Simulated assay, not measured.
Amino acid sequence: MIKNENLSIKGKHNKPIMMDFSYVSNKTRKPIVIFCHGYKGFKDWGAWNLVAEMFAKAGFFFVKFNFSHNGGTKEQPIDFPDLEAFGNNTFIIELDDLENVLDLITASSFKHKNEVDSTKITLIGHSRGGGIATIKATEDHRVNKLITWASVCDYKNRFPKGETLKQWKEDGVMFVENGRTKQQMPHYFQFYTSFVDNENRLTIKKAVKNIKVPHLIIHGTKDPTVSVKEAKEIHSWNDKSELFLVEDANHVFGAKHPWETEILPHHLLEIVEKSMQFAIL
Rank of each mutant, 00 (worst) to 15 (best):
K161A: 13
S118A: 12
D154K: 03
A207M: 11
Y155E: 01
L202H: 02
F189P: 02
I121P: 08
G179V: 13
T119L: 06
K145G: 04
P160H: 09
E177V: 12
E177A: 06
N157D: 13
T148V: 14
T225Y: 02
I147D: 06
P186G: 04
D223F: 15
I132S: 03
R128W: 01
R128Q: 02
H112P: 03
D140R: 11
D140N: 15
E199P: 00
F159H: 03
N178W: 03
E199R: 01
E199T: 00
E115T: 13
K136A: 11
N144G: 15
V208A: 11
K111T: 12
G130E: 05
N157I: 15
L123N: 05
Q167L: 11
E139D: 14
G131T: 04
Y188V: 06
T221Y: 13
M185L: 07
G125H: 06
I121M: 05
L202D: 04
G172A: 03
N200C: 06
K169A: 12
K166E: 15
E139W: 11
T119Y: 08
I217H: 09
I132K: 00
T122Q: 06
E139Q: 15
D197L: 09
G130K: 04
L202K: 02
H112M: 09
T148C: 06
T138W: 14
K205F: 15
R128V: 00
E177W: 09
R128M: 03
V152P: 01
F191V: 05
Q184S: 14
V176H: 12
T119G: 07
K111S: 12
I147H: 08
G172C: 02
H141T: 13
M185R: 03
D140L: 10
T193G: 01
F159L: 03
S151D: 06
Y155K: 00
G162V: 10
G130W: 04
K113A: 10
S194D: 14
M185P: 01
D154C: 10
